[in-house]
């Protein structure tokens, strides 16, 4: 099979944090927030079925990582995966159409929120199984190493998934084989509805890196610049062939495990939510951009309006998309293989 020549972002050192990069990160975060808030409203009004696991509050992580990657760098995502694909340049219309279960969706309505993939963008799939991604990520990383492409794979997973055996198996092999993979733990404080201190005895998931013989780094997941710099070092290290890194981004899920409601719940105090919201990742970066003179408030407002318009266009596309027809039910169970090749 002929393969496209792989593109590698800017050599093997992290690109400099220019004004353009800062604006790029900010825009990706705004796009995620807007996508998720509108999706939440659609779910609340009953127009989107199924379960939505919203990424609101965690935007700095996806944006700060993804700005380092090209379409030829892969990611594996999670059940809370919308933000990853939005940040990787996914088509918002096809994403919403998938949430609606429409034929125009990324998966033609067969996957839904938890299973969106975009192979062209190197997004190997959100996954409805907690901990399913790490083994897949090391396989993709193995492929990059085998071919010598210089590309990397970023494996997103949560604090909850760090307790699954698959994470352990994959981390062990990644370090053993020196694979170009970054284990990016989005520690939002909860495995579903269970607080971290009730599901593991450690405070920093990054501590586990020592057990596999790879570096482990903790970063403030609400600070997009910090994520950018830490992820950049880990990604550059992987591109240089120096093996995997475990990066733990401390972040927070504003909404519930599923759906929108995030306050007045039994598993956490409202005061805690409000405390985290004081360090909202978009506000933090926005203030910084203003101080640095990179963007004015007016420019940010204009950007938010433009993104919201884009989001509403995407929703209109999704609503206009037809449902899959019954004759599509049995399509794509198997790949059609033209016999011996």
């Amino acid at each position: 099979m002929p393969r496209r020549k792989s593109k590698v972002a800017d050599g093997t050192n992290p690109p400099a944090l220019t004004d353009d990069v800062l604006r790029d990160i900010f825009e990706r975060m705004v796009r995620i927030r807007s996508f998720e808030e509108e999706a939440g409203k659609l779910m609340e009004s009953g127009r989107i079925p199924g379960a939505l696991h919203l990424y609101v509050g965690e935007e700095a992580v996806a944006a700060g990582v993804m700005v380092h990657l090209t379409d030829d760098d892969q990611i594996t995502s999670t059940h809370r995966g919308h933000g990853h694909l939005v940040a990787k340049g996914g088509d918002l219309g096809r994403m919403y159409a998938e949430l609606f279960g429409k034929a125009g969706g990324y998966c033609k309505g067969k996957g839904g929120s938890m299973h969106i993939s975009d192979v062209e963008k190197g997004m190997l799939g959100a996954n409805g199984i907690v901990g399913a991604g790490p083994p897949i990520a090391i396989g993709a990383a193995f492929s990059n190493k085998y071919r010598g492409t210089g590309n990397v794979t970023v494996c997103f997973f949560g604090d909850g998934a760090s307790n699954e055996g698959t994470f352990h198996e994959a981390a062990n092999m990644a370090a053993l084989y020196g694979l170009p993979v970054i284990f990016l733990c989005e520690n939002n404080g909860f495995g579903e509805y269970t607080r971290q201190d009730r599901h593991q005895a450690i405070r920093d998931v990054a501590d586990r890196a020592a057990g596999y013989g790879m570096p482990g780094v903790v970063v403030d997941g609400m600070d997009a610049v910090a994520v950018y710099e830490t992820a950049g070092e880990a990604i550059a290290r992987a591109r240089r062939g120096e093996g995997p890194t475990l990066v733990e981004a401390k972040t927070y899920r504003y909404f519930d495990h599923v759906g929108v409601r995030g306050m007045g719940v039994v598993y956490r105090d409202d005061s805690e939510v409000l405390e985290w919201r004081k360090r909202d990742p978009i506000d933090l970066l926005g203030s910084r951009l203003e101080e640095l003179g990179v963007m004015t408030r007016e420019q940010m407002d204009t950007l938010q309006e433009r993104v919201l318009f884009e989001v509403r266009e995407a929703i209109a596309f999704a609503e206009a998309s037809p449902d899959p027809t019954p004759d599509q039910l049995l399509e794509d169970v198997y790949t059609v293989t033209a016999g011996a090749r």
Partner: peptide, 12 residues
Amino acid sequence: GIVGAGIGAAMA
């Protein structure tokens, strides 16, 4: 882990 690695490599 190894089956998943095979899946990921096959995807790639």
